[in-house]
Amino acid sequence: MNIFRLAGDLTHLISILVLLLKIYATKSCSGISLKTQELYALVFLARYLDLFTDFVSVYNTVMKLVFIGSSLAIVWCMRMHRIVKRSYNRELDTFRHYFLVAGSFVLALVVHEKFTLQEIFWAFSIYLEAVAILPQLVLLQRSGNVDNLTGQYVFFLGAYRAFYILNWIYRYFTEQRFGRWISWISGLVQTALYADFFYYYFMSWKNNAKLQLPA
């Protein structure tokens, strides 16, 4: 464990806590894409298949359970919770995320480290996570103004993978471990997808203005 990876995991955890806070505090999920939440639930379920077979550390197991549990709870909340589901922007959240799932799975069948079930699902989860934010970014552009908690949620979610990239660089130089190039490339694509969001987020913070993404 290094400081970059710890910062990444904590930033990821903070993004989830901010999202939970927004939904429970405002009893609303307006501005949140259910499709992105479903994609993330799929990412964690596909990536942590080894949850009960390979024990790495208490920290590792606890965080995996938190990520799986929170993503499923958020999807349940947005689909089933009486009050919350009423505020879901169904008409704006129209990204065809099934194509992202299908594309990622086909790519994982072609490009992976080993042709085993676990490795293919791992690669699938890495590719899917890189594009999982797309429905959310599209929804933000369509919904005009973005409430603070939603903006902070997306910001932390984007920042966590940037910390992971620093972690891979750190591990490359200190442990002579090139690691997995699949993670490298997908992580760079994932972080790049947030580039314009980060720009508008920073400008809104600098000008102390409301976050507005150009349609």
Binding site: D50, V56, N60, F67, N167, R171, R177, G179, R180
Partner: peptide, 10 residues
């Protein structure tokens, strides 16, 4: 092998 290199990552 590189497979388990980053197994400890989330």
């Amino acid at each position: 092998s590189s497979i388990n290199d980053l197994k400890d990552e989330l």
